[in-house]
């Protein structure tokens, strides 16, 4: 079988867990197929960081560190990746599912005449024919998708495979872009990193408080947790009616309908109208003193306990996790 090429995306010169996950995934397919996995990095990544890829079992690490490629140009990145795929004879090109791969992977697939499946949620069901699984209709169903072309391009949904260490001796090879980078057609003119609050409607994680918070003065730890998770804060109707929190934070049937990946309900009993506003969330975590509270019927994870006692250790545990990944 042809080789597996893994595009290893960096974020300001560092790899993230999602990158290592793609490496592990590619290495595992290579092992099953009895072939070699190669990592390819584009942009300014130090050797000391590149070598971290070898911890996950990849033996050849290619790096294309051209200053013109320090910011993303979809066309240029796709040109580099597809050139390497061709010269190395790659049969499968693996990305982690990210904004960058959404931009680049489809272009690579066209250059390689390869079918593309974005955001696969596990190892291939079979290698020949090549069948992978992905969520469709935003998780309302799973689909088995077959890629019919000789070369395949896939991206791996985050957290769908996990990382496992498997340190290998690796070599790092520098490669050239292989084309005139002065012809790049997009230019980054400004970069702004926002520090502002996450908007409720856009939030992937929502941290919400109800009457069980007891007083508007108790919101500090909840806000701290939200900040740690990059989450928006929200509240139940009684809380906004009492004026503890602004009406714009009211989530529920008559407030905002939200569908984040993760919804925390602290001290919210879970009246039907509240649940109706959050039931499309992927995961719901409920913390409430009343074990009979209806919120636990809607929740995936629950703690019976006082919010003020649960929040501090929860914040500590999240901090610990964040320092590890």
């Amino acid at each position: 079988m042809n080789k597996i090429l893994i595009y290893t995306e960096n974020f300001d010169g560092k790899f993230k867990k999602s990158t290592f996950e793609a490496v592990c995934y590619g290495v595992e397919i290579a092992r099953q197929a009895g072939t070699e996995a190669i990592a390819l990095s584009i942009g300014d990544v130090a050797e000391s960081e590149l070598i971290n890829l070898s911890k996950y079992g990849v033996a050849r690490i290619l790096t294309c560190n051209n200053p013109m490629l320090s910011t993303l140009d979809n066309q240029a990145y796709a040109a580099v990746i597809s050139q390497v795929a061709k010269s190395e004879g790659a049969g499968i090109v693996v990305f982690s599912a990210s904004n960058t791969s959404k931009a680049v992977a489809p272009r690579v697939s066209v250059k390689l005449n390869a079918g593309l499946v974005f955001s696969v949620s596990g190892l291939p069901k079979s290698l020949n024919p090549f069948v992978v699984v992905k969520k469709v209709f935003h998780g309302k169903a799973f689909a088995d998708v077959m890629i019919k072309s000789d070369v395949k391009v896939i991206s791996i949904a985050q957290n769908s495979f996990g990382v496992r260490e498997n340190t290998t001796e690796a070599v790092i090879e520098s490669i050239s872009a292989g084309f005139d980078t002065s012809a790049i057609k997009t230019k980054v003119t400004n970069v702004e990193k926002s520090t502002g609050k996450v908007l409720l409607n856009d939030a992937e994680v929502v941290v919400s408080g109800g009457r069980g918070m007891k007083s508007p003065d108790n919101w500090k730890p909840l806000e701290e947790l939200a900040e740690l998770l990059g989450a928006a804060t929200a509240c139940s109707r009684p809380v906004s009616d009492e004026g503890w929190r602004p009406h714009s934070e009211h989530v529920g049937q008559t407030g905002k309908i939200v569908a984040p990946n993760l919804y925390f309900a602290f001290g919210i009993s879970g009246a039907i109208q509240h649940v109706a506003g959050v039931s499309s969330s992927k995961f719901i975590v409920a913390v409430n003193t009343d074990k009979e509270a209806p919120i636990f019927q809607a929740a995936d994870y629950g703690i019976v306990g006082d919010v003020q006692k649960v929040l501090p250790p929860l914040i500590e545990a999240v901090k610990k996790l964040k320092s590890e990944v």
Binding site: A141, D144, K148, A299, D300, G302, I303, V310
Partner: peptide, 26 residues
């Protein structure tokens, strides 16, 4: 088309709420 949907599966039904002890928040 270079890809084809060969089979579908419904998502897992919602499992019961998993309870965590208040003394073991981590």
């Amino acid at each position: 088309a270079l890809t084809g949907f060969v089979n579908y599966e419904p998502p897992m039904p919602k499992a019961a709420c998993k309870m965590v002890d208040a003394d073991n928040v981590a």
